[in-house]
Design a protein around this nucleic acid. Structure first.
Length: 391
DNA sequence: TCTGGGGTCCTAGGACCC
DNA sequence: TCTGGGGTCCTAGGACCC
């Protein structure tokens, strides 16, 4: 009889350091060492090189509008600036910080570069956003430290950028580890390290415990992961849902069996826009109509570009008071047609009572399916069940 | 000086069918 | 005829992540 012995997995989480800001520093090397904030609208205030060779930049205190910080250099972070903070607030903290508009095409380019560099070493990669990936190292020879250093070197050679790596028995722990020694960090951890390295950390270091859960746990006297690990499951179940309580318990023990997903399928494709000022349904009808039509057209283009069709069409509205609501409708056929999407969003809009000014409008297509062929009247996904008489 | 944009996952309730 | 239970689909909202 052959016994199958389960070997511990070796999962790496590779996270690019201050990714957007670092890409900007490649473009504008003279800004190195200065507090730089990336954010605001793309059409706003790029840096320009004057005819005399001087780099002309805009300062944070000059900014007026609804933008938020997308990312900031470590110099700006030292002053308390973090992602998601409104630019106006950041300007109070570091008025002289340099503000650069986000340049997503560049970030996308560097993202592909670093992922391609890693892909030369292994195919066991899970994409987890523009600036991070999980890598399953289990089947690779060499010890973890050697592998981590080759990964860092490959990324550096391909992009000129630094990354931080955490290696642990699962994704949850690897993700926590990669954050421990940023920037240019490397942390390798086994199960036996959990009590002294993980348990002293705040519960919010766990990917999946956000602001709401952190707050709720704090009220219950649970602040660290160690305290969460010691909590009784029955106690957690009485304050959180059944499934979330179990997940919290396991996460605190460092248990996570999620596999590496190498080719995830998209579930939805969406576009949304926050208006420069809040709009009134009647007075600003033209602007809203045009915006809706643009969003639908962009979503349609995105669908075509990524080769998807979808049949659930939805809208998202955010009012001036930040109340957010969604409406959606499921069609009988799949589509990637802007006109059909627009018609469906109009149906959705009819189901909303407008009493407040509108801050945001969004369009989303879900129930996606890849691969399709045109069939005169409608678009049918190949894997949809076909009537037998077709075959 | 409040709070971007693109996503995922989960929950809960109702409709509908057998 | 006063009332079951499982399964699936759809809708809406919310937490969370990068």
């Amino acid at each position: 009889m052959v016994m199958k012995i389960a070997t511990a997995r070796r999962i790496a989480h590779l996270d690019m350091d201050a990714f957007y800001a670092s890409v900007e520093l490649i473009r504008y090397p003279r800004l190195r060492g200065l507090p730089v904030v990336v954010g605001g609208r793309t059409e706003h205030r790029p840096a320009t090189i004057k005819p005399d060779g001087m780099l002309h930049v805009h300062r944070l205190h000059e900014y007026v509008g609804r933008g938020v910080v997308t990312t900031a250099t470590y110099e700006a972070r030292a002053a308390g600036v973090f992602s998601g903070m409104s630019l106006m607030k950041a300007a109070q903290l570091v008025p002289n910080a340099i503000l650069l508009p986000a340049n997503f095409a560049s970030y996308q380019y560097y993202s592909k570069l670093f992922k391609a560099a890693v892909a030369k070493l292994t195919t066991q990669i899970e994409d987890s956003g523009i600036d991070e990936i999980y890598i399953d190292l289990t089947q690779l020879p060499n010890d973890s430290k050697i592998l981590a250093n080759s990964l860092k070197q490959a990324v550096k050679e391909a992009t000129g950028l630094c990354c931080s790596i955490g290696i642990a028995p699962n994704k949850l722990l690897a993700k926590i580890c990669s954050d421990l020694e940023k920037p240019d960090g490397l942390t390798i951890m086994g199960v036996s390290d959990i009590p002294h390295r993980i348990w002293p950390l705040s519960v919010k270091k766990i990917n999946g415990i956000g602001p709401k859960a952190t707050e709720k746990l704090a009220v219950l006297g649970i602040n660290t992961i160690g305290e969460l690990a010691q909590a009784k499951l029955s106690f957690l179940k009485s304050y959180f849902g059944y499934n979330y309580a179990i997940w919290l318990m396991e996460a605190a023990q460092g248990i996570d069996n999620r596999p590496i997903i190498t080719n995830p399928k998209a579930k939805s494709i969406s576009r949304e826009t926050t208006f420069e000022r809040n709009l009134d349904l009647y007075h600003d009808r033209t602007v809203l109509t045009e915006s809706l039509s643009n969003l639908c057209e962009k979503v349609a283009q995105d669908l075509k570009c990524k080769n998807y069709v979808g049949r659930t069409i939805g809208i998202k509205l955010r009012f001036a008071d930040f109340q957010t609501l969604t409406r959606n409708i499921t069609l009988s056929t799949y589509t990637d047609d802007g006109i059909k999407i627009l018609a469906a969003t109009r149906e959705c809009l009819r189901r909303i009572v407008f009493q407040k000014k509108i801050r945001l409008l969004g369009v989303r297509v879900s129930s996606l399916s890849p691969f399709y062929y045109e069939n005169n009247a409608s678009v049918i996904p190949l894997q949809a069940e076909l009537p037998f008489d077709v075959i």
